[in-house]
């Protein structure tokens, strides 16, 4: 093996890598935030007494969960223009990520909602709260606290999925890494550092979320 390690080109371009990482985090945050809203609505739809809603929601979840995310990304970015919807790379990826997240989070939220004793809703009804108020002030806050561990896992997973934005040339971390790799031929160094960045970030996110879990835990 005639390969001498030379990390210099990687360190010189560290700012690009970090910018890519920052972009990836931003995409993850916004994508998951929107995904949470979609997922919450879908979870309620999955539990709705209206059959059409249940079917629609179940269809959405099954479709998205069984389709490779890369296909979804390409579909939204390349195929939508043929029916008149033209989006820029960033928006397209963001929407794809949100829809993808929504389908996975819907299952998480649905489990969380089903675990809430129905007495909670009845207690809310008994003091005269409206249905939407009960959802807003009781059901959703309790449910979110209960599903926080699963939510954390989903967040980390979705952050890693932002690496796929590179497939449509969104300049996040993986894209930057590939660029450096192709330009400098420092193959081992580039990918080692990139992996390390991802692993470190995931670790920090996990740590922060565990702190959050502890602070919000209902079993104090």
């Amino acid at each position: 093996m005639n390969y001498t390690l030379n990390f210099a080109p990687v360190w010189q371009n560290l700012d690009h890598l970090l910018a890519g990482l920052a972009l990836g985090l931003q995409l993850a945050l916004v994508g998951i935030a929107i995904g949470c809203l979609i997922g919450l609505a879908t979870a309620f739809a999955l539990l709705s007494p209206v059959r059409a809603l249940r079917w629609l929601a179940a269809g959405y979840v099954t479709l998205v969960r069984n389709t490779p995310i890369l296909v979804l990304i390409l579909l939204l970015y390349f195929a939508l223009p043929s029916i008149g919807i033209r989006l820029d790379k960033l928006s397209s990826f963001l929407i794809t990520l949100a829809l993808y997240a929504g389908a996975y989070l819907a299952e998480v939220f649905r489990g969380g909602l089903m675990a809430i004793p129905k007495g909670q809703r009845e207690a809310g009804l008994a003091i005269g709260l409206r249905e939407w108020q009960i959802k807003a002030y009781v059901i959703i806050p309790v449910m979110l606290r209960n599903v926080l561990p699963s939510l954390s896992n989903s967040f980390i997973s979705l952050f890693k999925d932002t690496s796929l934005a590179a497939a449509i040339a969104v300049p996040e971390l993986t894209y930057q890494a590939r660029k450096i790799n192709l330009e400098s031929y420092r193959v081992i160094e580039t990918w080692l550092v990139t992996s390390a960045l991802y692993i470190l970030t995931c670790y920090v996110i996990a740590l922060l979320l565990r702190q959050l879990e502890r602070r919000l835990s209902l079993t104090r």
């Binding site: 993986t174 790799n181 992996s195 692993i199």
Partner: peptide
């Protein structure tokens, strides 16, 4: 597990 699978493939 901490690395995105895409990065793994490229690497």
């Amino acid at each position: 597990r901490g690395t995105p699978v895409f990065v793994l493939v490229l690497a």
